[in-house]
Design a protein around this nucleic acid. Structure first.
Lengths: 121, 121
DNA sequence: TGATGTGTACTATTATACATAGTACACTGA
DNA sequence: TCAGTGTACTATGTATAATAGTACACATCA
């Protein structure tokens, strides 16, 4: 797979992250069609079921939508943010910050990374 | 366990995070002795082996040190930061940012959380 | 209509990680 | 000596990941 840096993630999670990133970068636009599970499986050297699992999660997250018999397409970006999604996400973020500080990484460096990430995506 | 918000983590990972947080908050100080694996197992309603796994990771991370036959103690905070540790950590942070943006969470909100976390730890 | 390509839903197998349980050992200190 | 350290080891049960194969309803197109 292309995203070598994410060795700690499962294959299907890497694929989900890869597609999310390409959407944020504007490489994939709303209405674009993703390769079929079988095509993507060949491209990424994965089992079709693994790709299907990634597509299923993207669909559940509202990132994509499925037109039965036609394919999977990129959805319009979310307009209103789910408060429950935010509440569920925050502990993850805070855990990452704790881990960073324990490694001796300053909050300033995290801010810098955040700024750079904002530029890239 | 006390850290209810981290249901997505394994028990031993929650314990590691809990101890790291208490160190950052100044509740646990360098030289302080952690409860024995058997004591902590009783406190946290865990199997001693699960606690041992958490202690092992803390030791490997340089967070604690072991005095054989005496116990596990909080180490002095890291002075110089391992560049390899930083390099390995950054993809994790970036993945979190991508996930946040996909949920519709703004970078500004992440900055705010970062500031609040800086105050707490 | 028939053929092809969609996503999806199954079953099954293998491998790995988590958590538990129990036992054993070298070490330290009273 | 004896109790309390961390650690190592085997074993079991559970859950998840990834694989493989099959099947089905649907849409499109010749």
């Amino acid at each position: 797979m292309a995203t070598d840096s994410y060795a700690h993630l499962a294959y299907y999670e890497r694929l989900v992250l890869q597609i999310k990133t390409q959407i944020l970068q504007g490489i994939l636009l709303p209405g674009d069609r993703l390769p079929s599970v079988r095509e993507m499986a060949k491209q990424e050297q994965l089992n079709p079921n693994t790709v299907a699992k990634a597509y299923k999660q993207l669909d559940q997250d509202g990132i994509t939508y499925v037109e039965p018999g036609r394919g999977t397409f990129i959805a319009e970006p979310l307009t209103k943010v789910s408060t429950t999604a935010i509440a569920a996400f925050r502990p993850k973020f805070e855990a990452i910050v704790v881990e960073a500080k324990s490694l001796g990484i300053s909050v300033d460096l995290l801010r810098q990374w955040l700024n750079e990430a904002e530029g890239n995506i």
